[in-house]
Structure formats: C-alpha cells, structure tokens
Design a binder for these strands. Structure first.
Lengths: 206, 206
DNA sequence: AAAAATTAAGTGAGTATTAACTCACCACCT
DNA sequence: AGGTGGTGAGTTAATACTCACTTAATTTTT
C-alpha cells in the first residue's frame, strides 16, 4: 500500500535534475508555505536559494508555473493514495489504526505542501474542475469510500460516503491543525483516542 | 447568550459611518475572501465598490490597515462568544444541540470572514501573540472548556480541554468545509448525526 | 587524444508593468 | 465659512520577467 513519501528534499535527491532547479523548488515550497504565494517574490526565492532570478525563469515560465509544477506531484499522490486500498485489512480497528497512523504521518511529512494547497483552496485559486473531481470524480475519494460499509458489516449501513469521509477527516484534520499549525501541545493518548472515536462513530446506531 | 450576528451588510446598516467607507468594507471583505488579500488590489476594491481609490485611503492608512479594521470586530466576537456560557443548559444533549446549531449558523453567516481569517493563519500573517493567546490565554477557548466535565458528569473525566475542543470543532469544521467551501451536497440528517457523534465521543469510555 | 563544436547550467543587469499610496481640489451640508 | 465626504490624476517603489552573455560539461570530429 501507499508508502508515505519521504520529505521533499529527500525525494528530489533521488531525482535527476539540475541543482539550481532543485534549490528553487525546495526554497519556493518553504517560502510559499510560510508566507503565502503572493507575498513571496521571485527575488526572495532566488536569494534564499542562492541562485539568480534568471535560474528560476530558466526552468519555469512564470511564478504561477513554478507553483503548478511544485504542486503537481503531491496532488497526484494525494489523489491516488489518500484513501486507497481500504479493504486489505483484517478487521475494522486495524484498518482505522492503519489509516490514522499513515495519513497523519503523511500530512506531517508533507505539511508545507498541505499548507500551500489549503491556501490555494481558500483563495479560490484551485478551481472547481481541478479538485471538485478530486472528491466526487469517478475514482475520487468519496466513491472510494463507498465500498467500506459493504466490506465491514459492523459499520452503520446508513452512512453515506460523505459522512464516512468526515468521520475520518474531522479528527485527523483537527489534530494536525492544533498540533502543526497552532503549535498547541498534544496529549500522548491523542492518537489512540482518535482511533476509538472513529470506530465509535462508524459503528454508531442512530 | 451570544446572539448570532447578522451578515456584515446588515450590521453595517445599523452603524453610523460614511457610505463610501461602508462600501469599501463590504467590497474588500468579498474580494479578500474570494481571491485572497494579496491578489486583491486597491484599484479593484475601489472599482467594485463604486468609489475612488482616494476614498479608501481617506479612512484607512494602508491596505493592511483596512484588513485589520475589517477583522477586528469579528475576531473580538469570536473570542468572546465562540465557546461561552457552556453551563446554562439543562442536559448535555441540549447543550450539544445548541452549540452545533448556533456555531454552524455563525460560521455560515460569517463565512467570508472565516475564510479570510484562515487565509491569514495559513500564510502566517496572524502571528502568535494575536491568536495563540486566543486559544490558551486566560479567558481563551481551551480554559473555558475545562469546566465542562465538572458540569456534566457523564462526560469522560479523562478528556483534556484540548481533546474536548477537537470533539466539537472536528465535525463542525469538516461539515462547513465540505458544504460551504467545496460545495459538496449535504445530507438532511448531517446535523443530527454530528450531534450524536459529539455526544458519543464526549461520553466514550476508553 | 587533442581540438572543435554543441549542449546544458547559470548569471545579473535591465525593462516594463503593476499597484500602493499621495495630494490638491471639488461639492455639499449645516 | 468651515467641516465632512469624496475625487482621480500623478508619483514612486516594487516586482515579475527578459536577454545577451559566461562558464562548464559533454559530444563530435579530426
């Protein structure tokens, strides 16, 4: 199943690509994540990356293009693997355990990307066709969740895929927000609690 | 208890303020929310508001100042009322029912503000001192939640205020994201389900 | 193997445009 | 006649992007 990606620098290290281009990509990611796309100037990227502005435009036709090429691989990765292979675990608790651990790890390792993606969604730059389909498209996240109740009879069969998605995403998202974005302390039993809550909510009769 | 604010235009209608200033505020809010702060030019605000750029700078010393003055009232409102008066309901289900209904309504009515605030958080513009204290400060959200278990013995007494916050915020946030931001359809029983899940998670023994 | 030619990687000063902000001025109301 | 609300052309600084060029590596030719 989906191996969690190593962080971006490690990934790029295994990719054949001019050194300057790599430095531009990693630096742009950091600056975009921490300051936002529009507040980040190409001059700043070049300076921080230790290259000239010319190098940026050697490999990217525009700042927009740089952003697009930066996000492209992770967006595909998310789309393909975020909720995939949901039926190869023995029992429901194991499945939940795997998903929570794996996805929180994924989000933490790729947190800079997640931040930029959410920025783009919130500012309306990631338009309908590019991510609407990501959720409800043919092989999108929601359709993939639809088969879960069939595989696990203890799940409340009245739950829609949309509701199931929220049961998983709610606690995971909130945990990561609190922890990584707001910098609030976490409890040692937080992850265990999240798993129990997801299980309880999936099997809740109402 | 906290009355939900009417939408921003209605609020401003009851406020004594030059017409041009009002139009600038409401227009800026819409543009900031939909396109982001940096992607919104003062020229665009003026044009959309039907005033001159001079009018903007008549009342606001800078674009930053306009944003600050725009967010100031709602930030105070959120801080004062988002999780307030948590002990004046008869029983736990009634309390949950009230919070979910009231807070989702608040978020929906003020969704443009919420969007801008999240944009600011994600781009690191809302700095530590301004909102770190908002959560863990003396009268912040988390301390206020701390007294909940004492008032409702059926709540699992091992839950920390941080965990209680997540139990409430997780489903509410996810619901609003799915609905208002992504535009995905909602189920008629979504709100009822959310309330049941919150109750289950608060009383879960683990 | 040396020389020549070609490609790849990178530079940085320069340009053109955009966008925040100013200011002298107008019109209306009391 | 003075205060309040509003104007819009003009200025200035910033920033995305260009381009003619250098240097280093690789390949081709002799």
């Amino acid at each position: 199943m989906s191996q969690v990606l190593a962080n971006y620098e490690d990934q790029l290290a295994n990719t054949k690509m001019p050194a300057g281009k790599k430095k531009v990509l990693t630096t742009a990611l950091k600056l975009f994540a921490n300051n936002g796309f529009h507040a980040t100037t190409t001059a700043k990227i070049a300076q921080q990356a230790g290259v000239s502005e010319g190098t940026i435009y050697k490999y990217f036709s525009s700042k927009e293009d740089l952003l697009a090429k930066l996000l492209q691989p992770i967006l595909r990765e998310i789309k393909n693997n975020f909720f995939s292979n949901l039926d190869d675990k023995a029992d429901l608790p194991s499945l939940i355990d795997f998903i929570v651990t794996d996805r929180i790890n994924f989000i933490e390792v790729n947190f800079d990307f997640i931040r930029v993606i959410f920025q783009e969604i919130l500012t309306g730059q990631l338009t309908d066709k590019s991510y609407q389909e990501f959720f409800i498209g043919n092989d999108g996240i929601l359709p993939r969740l639809q088969k879960l109740p069939a595989n696990y009879p203890e799940i409340n069969q009245k739950l829609t895929s949309s509701q199931i998605a929220r049961i998983f995403i709610g606690p995971i998202l909130t945990y990561v927000l609190q922890n990584k974005l707001l910098g609030l302390p976490v409890n040692s039993d937080d992850l265990e609690l999240i798993k129990q809550q997801i299980l309880a909510n999936l099997t809740l009769k109402y």
